[in-house]
Write a protein that binds this DNA or RNA. Structure first.
Lengths: 233, 233
DNA sequence: ACCTGAACACCGTTCAAGT
DNA sequence: ACCTGAACACCGTTCAAGT
């Protein structure tokens, strides 16, 4: 366990903001968000914990920067088909989170991570909706609906499981085994299709048990429905 | 600061599972999720921290139970109009989170809280979708889409702000002030409508700055769009 | 059965001090 | 300018001990 030469980028002096964030993301990918701490991060960097504070003001900012790198590049290039653009955006966000699923809880649930999103993304969504005919107050409402839809499915699909997976699996399975056909007929009738494939009834997250069908339906429904809403306030 | 007689329900011996959870929710409502700890909870209960462990196995279970009480009662009674049922469900979830906004991050982003949802809710969603004509694999896909839509908007709208609100507001405002009309024309043109009213461009959460228009459009778009999707796989 | 008390192995952040 | 070291005020959880 030697020190130094661990800056990931290979900067000359020692630490750098970008290097710290890169190692933080590696650490979260490997060990999970629950096990991430500035103390562990400092250890991985071969440095004293408090050295981080010279480059970044605190833990929340580190996490915001981590999320910013995760969702960098999700904004599709402009195109005439605004519905296709929105679909592509939603898929890009999900794909980005799939690459770093342990960061999923940081997106959406924390206002901190709002700053992670670029203004180009905001402008892109507004441009797509403007092409679609939305303006004024309706443009803002549609923007908020898109922003929510963009992260709503994937953050839940990919949210991490409890630490002790086997115990968790046992609880959910016991719950499913106890389902009575008279009280919950549709759950009972579709048990094989639902078990570990549906929210609330699963014991693995989207990494092990992807919900592609549900996501595709969600995207199609949302974009189709958005196109059917009135344009002006 | 006397001890005992703080069980909220007024149970005879001392602590009770329900009493602990009730006080935990009060504490989170009052002080926020960031400042919630089992040690604070024990103090509020007038008891040693480790006494909680006799009634509940750990922090995560306490939080799951808290969320269960928050979303208890969101499932609407069955009705013939399945679209109206879904709309009502989505509004009920949002209303429940509005009553306890500090718990919003617990819902959706944490697989733990999955167990907070009742099987009646699952059965209700399946029944509504079955009435709408969904079956088999498409039923499961539609269920997952509904489950995501149900919590996706509200959890983000109501997610808490960073602890030091003024500093946060300053950062977001500075970002908005720096918007250039040539680089981001639509943001610039709609600045007054967007500032503090849109995701990424706000500095207050849904408690201070509700997003009613965005939520209503989200609900209408999703339900309309869902009704337009093919029913069979 | 229900709770206390001590202990273990951690946290984020501040601040003076080094180089 | 950049990092170390000590210190402060916390955490969740385990486990033996009390009553």
């Amino acid at each position: 366990m030697a020190k130094s030469t661990k800056t990931a980028g290979g900067g000359s002096p020692g630490l750098s903001r970008a290097g710290i964030v890169a190692v933080a993301l590696e650490l979260i990918d490997r060990e999970g968000l629950e096990n991430f701490s500035l103390r562990n991060l400092a250890k991985a960097l071969g440095v004293n914990t408090t050295a981080i504070y010279w480059h970044l003001p605190g833990r929340n900012v580190v996490l915001a920067e981590v999320m910013a790198t995760v969702i960098a590049g999700v904004t599709p290039p402009a195109q005439a088909d605004w519905r296709a653009w929105l679909r592509l955006l939603m898929h890009n966000v999900r794909d980005a989170l799939k690459r770093h699923p342990n960061t999923a809880p940081l997106l959406g649930a924390q206002l901190v991570s709002n700053i992670a999103a670029s203004l180009d993304l905001v402008e892109g969504i507004l441009a797509a909706l403007r092409t679609g005919g939305f303006a004024g107050q309706r443009l803002v409402a549609a923007y908020n609906a898109v922003a929510a839809a963009m992260v709503g499915f994937a953050t839940q699909e990919l949210s991490p499981m409890p630490e002790d997976a086997p115990a968790w699996q046992a609880i959910v399975r016991a719950r499913l085994d106890a389902v009575q056909a008279d009280a919950h007929p549709l759950i009972a009738a579709n048990m094989k299709l639902l078990a570990n494939r549906a929210f609330i009834l699963r014991w693995e997250n989207g990494v092990q048990a992807p919900m592609d069908d549900g996501f595709d339906l969600f995207v199609e429904a949302f974009v189709d429905g958005l196109d059917r809403q009135p344009r002006d306030a």
